[in-house]
Design a protein around this nucleic acid. Structure first.
Lengths: 227, 227
DNA sequence: CGTCTATTTGAGTTAGCTCAACCGTCGTGG
DNA sequence: CCACGACGGTTGAGCTAACTCAAATAGACG
């Protein structure tokens, strides 16, 4: 189980990164591959890189001392992981699938990147958008019911990575139920029951456990806002 | 009641700002005063300014269509409000006390500030720190009990603005119970009951309804982490 | 085919919610 | 100056959404 697995179960993140780095550009950034389940960085590590996700999905999370976990985000291609306001990462980050990354090496004593004003501007834009996304997630965590949370979550994924054939939209869930639970502030049982309910109502289908088919997108959207 | 008060109850935010602006510097920033209860900006307004809080406290919040509200942050001196990733504000912001602000005028078609790379760097640093704070708040909203939430909230304020005399630490609560409730994802009744419980256990005192005296800071910190 | 793990389903519990009454403070107007 | 109403906060009683614990099921994989 993720929730209780100690950090030491995985290799040290530095080692993982070193192992899978393929030197791309000699300059400030290079390309790296990380396989499923491996860690990009840990809470407390030196924040030497900013990770641009090019392919695959990562999960960032934070642990409380008693094992409770909050998943902070699922990072899809185009997203950035590892932004830090000081010298350290403040979350764990793990590959949920085989991941291709662009690593931007960071001056260890500066949040921003020297001689890269454009990249800094991009980062600022990204950070501002991230703040906005997180604010939306605040509403989700603070004020929405279980059904609303799950429906909102599915809609976000549908809009972002859904494949539309004729009438339905289909997408993969690279994360397991406990990841979803810890993202939405619920339990795995509640996630499961809610998905079952949505399926029973004909709003979605679950061809495989980690694959969703949205049959009634408008009904799903309605459920994300009320009840 | 804040939760249900329509936007139109207050004057248009542009007007408010215009009225209370005292031209400080002729350049990119100027100083402004906003009295208690008045709005700095609304969700949907053109994001023309970034607000640097110099004195007083502001509250940013988001409303759902059915009236549910999530308070996103309480802004204290040194904080920034109004950061946006596009041309618009995505939250409401209101003065909880008489507030002094430095307004930074923004190019309406750019997130960042032209010819102000230093300010941009400051912004990036601030945004990264903000992301970090918000991640902490995710744990609060997603995984903590009512008691833990209230205790965490009090500790944050205590550490930030507490006045330490001999053995106790004292601070004001410029926000009302419903603000705290909507910040922590609880109801006013639960806030009230929890404060009563903390008082009964001798951890805090409430000399006035909007004033807190922390008698047992370590006990309070313990409660913030477990139950 | 058997084992391991993720997920689903069921049954009972509870933390926090809703609804309602009450209290205290403060501002207004007779 | 006092009565009254409004409003924010507290307290009580009962309810319910989501949790916990437990058992059954279903894939995945050697």
């Amino acid at each position: 189980m993720y929730v209780t697995s100690p950090v030491s179960f995985f290799e040290n993140s530095q080692a993982v990164c070193a192992r899978f780095i393929n030197e791309g550009n000699a300059g400030h950034s290079h390309i790296s591959h990380v396989p499923t389940g491996h860690r990009l960085f840990c809470d407390g590590d030196d924040a030497n890189y900013i990770y641009e996700i090019m392919e695959g999905v990562v999960r960032t999370s934070k642990l409380l001392s008693d094992g409770r976990r909050q998943v902070l985000s699922f990072g899809y291609p185009g997203d950035i992981a590892g932004l830090s306001h000081d010298h350290f990462y403040h979350s764990d980050c793990e590959a949920l699938s085989s991941v291709t990354l662009r690593l931007h090496h960071k001056n260890a004593f500066n949040v921003s990147f020297e001689n890269e004003p454009d990249f800094n501007n991009e980062l600022l834009k990204y950070a501002a958008a991230e703040v906005n996304n997180m604010q939306e997630h605040f509403i989700m965590l603070g004020r929405k019911s279980a059904t609303e949370k799950v429906a909102s979550f599915l809609i976000t994924l549908m809009d972002r990575v859904g494949q539309k054939d004729e009438c339905n939209t289909c997408f993969e869930l690279p994360m397991c139920r406990s990841d979803i639970a810890d993202f939405l502030g619920l339990t795995i049982e509640t996630i499961s029951r809610t998905l079952t309910k949505l399926r029973a109502e004909g709003v979605i289908e679950l061809p495989k456990k980690q694959q969703v088919l949205v049959c009634k997108p408008s009904a799903l959207r309605a459920m994300a806002e009320r009840n």
